[in-house]
Design a binder for these strands. Structure first.
Length: 675
RNA sequence: GCCUGGGUAGCUCAGUGGUAGAGCAGCGCACUUGUAAUGCGCAGGUCGUGGGUUCAAUCCCCACCCCAGGCUCCA
């Protein structure tokens, strides 16, 4: 790394062996390239080790275990996979095959409409291993567009890409890497020659020097995909795989996949008897069983409590409305793809509610509002229905009927900044309650399809950005990803096994207040337009539950656990005492159940543990005499015998209240006119 | 919607061109238990739905329904 005075035209490989730099190439040991140099970065640009460096440059070496290194070896592995598919299905067309965050994929079209099946993955893997064993070099060539087109004459997707490169070039912006000596646009190709085949692929690179650097890979699944992601174009078949720098890293990743599968909320939802999706009702519409509903209830109670404590006012609005409401709000024009179709009733057309905002606006506009009432924060656990295409449904994480912890804040322009800042703090306080501490935000700006004035959009977007800066949370900007009526902030968090989830969202909206002619009377006795902030912290209760189930792996903290304590009498002779214990627990508000002595003790303990119940209390002769219980704490393998019942109750109650201290933040609120 | 895989008992799954099996769960009886599966018995199925081929279909063919993964990462 660093700047070197380099002989003209030296390559990365030569540099590695150049004693002056003190760097050496490590021999690529098959099976582990963790600290083997795979490519180099020249002035910040990744290139092959074999590329000549013809100017003074800042060089860094990219090793297998780095982010860039993994990406290079995954991309190279994707090439080997394409080569294999070409070998096994002569005439196969290959489209694109990039590295992804966790692996790689390649899109293909097989001749004669043939399709891959899962069983093909084994065959392909085997052949790939052979190519890797042959240690074929990745040889880079550059060709002008006409030559390139000739090389890929039978590859329509590659031809299309070459054509796109040509168009880019003519559209000015001549970038260094795609321009040859005569300023002709060029494309680069990589050639792998081996015993089985001579394979070329159109590719910007870089690649590992030869296939021998690869080997720790696994093909994971076959999927469909559209050429260029456009559902109106050719459907291709995609093979997903992953590759790592060492066998250990690969194994660890595969273990993580397994762990994620074990935590799948749909699986745990069935095992723990929380909810299901009856066919009789239809896709994306869950029913919650008693234990699932208890968890929901706890979440919703918590949400109500923190909102009421934080100056929100409850409202309640219906699930259906005349279509005209959504015509006025603009939803019919901009959002109807996601709305259930209309129903006719008594000559009027009705719709299921896809968003709560227009209804909350009607609460605001039910009478004239004074500036003294602002900010006004209207809160509702509002159930909405959205039509999602069948293929995108995913357990509780993506449903067609959902309940949002939704609120709309109406405020004066002066209050906007303070409201947003307080809001971001409120969001983080609520999410922290569930043990999350790694947050990241995304600021989505004006989309192509939008309503309103650009100046309003800019104002709203800036207000959001400054709230994020004030809250000091890292964020990135997603250009054009905003809702049709407002820019938004999405808060993402990382769960217990490192996965990111999008939860909270907040939007600054200047359009709805205008569409509905909202106003407040200021201290100047004039009418002014309020700003409106849409926000949901959980996002949807269903999705939040899905995330919590996976985050906790089904082992909910005490305050959320549907059954908090299971009382297990050793024998029938202890039933009187265990009933007494149960009664006491219920009296103090703990959710407790009893498992009478109709099966052996070990079996009953086991069932309680499989249910992930936080406390299992075993009571026997000793306990009856001394008013004690034997406490089994979830996660601990040894029980604690002889704990005074009173002491246990005290412990449990304090753990419950610590679990969700969340009292909310007392904040300034507009004066409420109660009479 | 489209591609791939799947649909057999409440759950997890086995199975065959001659209309079905296991384990767990459920129910009954016995066992009376101090920390992760007591024993015996019983019951439970329109083999997703409809059509076709066949003497005969859960199995083979066709259509449909439902479930899962993917269709965001762009040489």
């Amino acid at each position: 790394m660093g700047s070197y005075n380099l002989p003209k035209g030296i390559t990365g490989s030569e540099l590695l062996n150049n004693t002056e730099t003190g760097l050496k190439a490590k021999a690529a040991k098959r099976g582990d390239v963790s600290d083997v140099v795979l490519a180099i970065e020249v002035d910040g640009k990744l290139v092959d080790l074999a590329s000549p460096i013809d100017h003074d440059a800042n060089i860094s070496f990219v090793i297998g275990s780095s982010m860039e290194g993994r990406s290079v070896l995954r991309h190279s592995t994707a090439h080997v996979m394409a080569q294999t598919v070409r070998d096994l299905w002569p005439g196969a067309k290959y489209a694109i095959g990039p590295a992804t965050e966790d692996g790689f994929y390649y899109d293909f079209e097989l001749p004669g409409g043939d399709h891959f099946t899962d069983a093909d993955l084994d065959r392909i893997e085997k052949r790939m291993s052979e190519i890797i064993k042959e240690d074929q070099p990745f040889a880079r060539e550059e060709h002008n567009l006409a030559e390139g087109a000739k090389l890929f004459a039978d590859q329509q997707y590659k031809l299309e890409i070459i054509q796109a490169v040509g168009e880019e070039e003519s559209a000015a912006d001549l970038s260094q890497d795609q321009v040859g000596v005569n300023n002709d646009p060029v494309v680069s190709v990589y050639r792998n020659a081996g015993d089985h085949s001579d394979f070329i692929d159109l590719c910007r690179g870089p690649h590992v020097p030869s296939t021998g650097y690869l080997g720790n890979f696994k093909l994971l699944k076959v999927a469909g995909s559209y050429w260029r992601g456009d559902e109106n174009r050719q459907q291709l078949q995609r093979i997903y795989g992953t590759a790592f720098e060492s066998p250990d890293a690969l194994t660890e990743y595969l273990k993580r996949l397994e762990e994620a599968e074990k935590r799948d909320h749909r699986k745990l939802g069935a095992e723990l008897d929380l909810f299901h999706f009856p066919h009789e009702i239809g896709g994306g519409l869950p029913v919650f069983h008693p234990k699932g509903a208890l968890i929901r209830t706890m979440l919703e109670d918590f949400s109500r409590q923190v909102h009421l404590n934080s100056g929100y006012l409850p409202v309640w609005t219906p699930h259906v409305t005349k279509s005209t409401l959504y015509a006025k709000s603009g939803h019919l024009e901009w959002y109807s793809d996601n709305m259930y179709p209309p129903m006719e009733m008594e000559g009027a057309e009705y719709r299921l509610k896809p968003m709560n905002c227009p209804m909350h606006i009607l609460v605001y506009s039910s009478r004239s509002r004074s500036y003294r009432e602002l900010p006004m924060r209207l809160f509702e656990l509002g159930t909405v229905y959205r039509f999602e295409r069948s293929g995108v449904l995913h357990g509780l994480a993506r449903v067609r009927g959902l309940t949002q912890d939704d609120a709309h804040i109406f405020c004066t322009p002066d209050q906007l900044h303070g409201e947003l800042e307080a809001l971001v703090a409120f969001v983080l306080e609520v999410l922290t309650t569930f043990g999350f501490d790694d947050f990241e935000a995304e600021l989505s700006t004006r989309p192509e399809k939008f309503v309103g004035e650009i100046s309003d959009w800019d104002l709203a977007t800036n207000a959001l950005a400054s709230a994020l800066s004030a809250a000091n949370i890292p964020y990135r900007v997603a250009e054009g990803e905003g809702a049709f009526y407002a820019p938004k902030i999405d808060i993402h968090l990382t769960d217990a096994i490192g996965r990111r989830w999008q939860v909270s969202t907040l939007q600054v909206d200047l359009q709805m207040p205008a569409r509905f002619g909202l106003y407040y009377v200021g201290d100047d006795n004039e009418r002014h337009r309020p700003y409106m902030v849409h926000r949901a912290l959980f996002g949807s209760v269903e999705r939040f539950m899905a995330m919590l189930i996976e985050h906790y792996a089904g082992a909910f903290p005490l305050w959320l656990a549907p059954v908090q304590v299971l009382v297990v009498p050793v024998a029938e002779s202890h039933h009187d005492y265990s009933d007494e214990v149960l009664l006491r627990l219920k009296e103090v508000g703990l959710r407790a159940d009893i498992y009478p002595a109709e099966e052996p003790l070990g079996a009953r303990i086991r069932k309680g543990k499989l249910e992930k119940i936080p406390y299992i209390l075993v009571v026997g002769d000793e306990d009856v005499d001394s008013r004690t219980v034997g406490v089994n704490r979830r996660g601990s393998s040894k029980p604690e015998r002889g704990v005074l019942l009173d002491d246990f109750v005290e412990e449990a109650l304090s753990v419950v209240s610590e679990g969700h201290a969340g009292g909310g933040t007392a904040v300034k609120i507009g004066r409420q006119r109660l009479i």
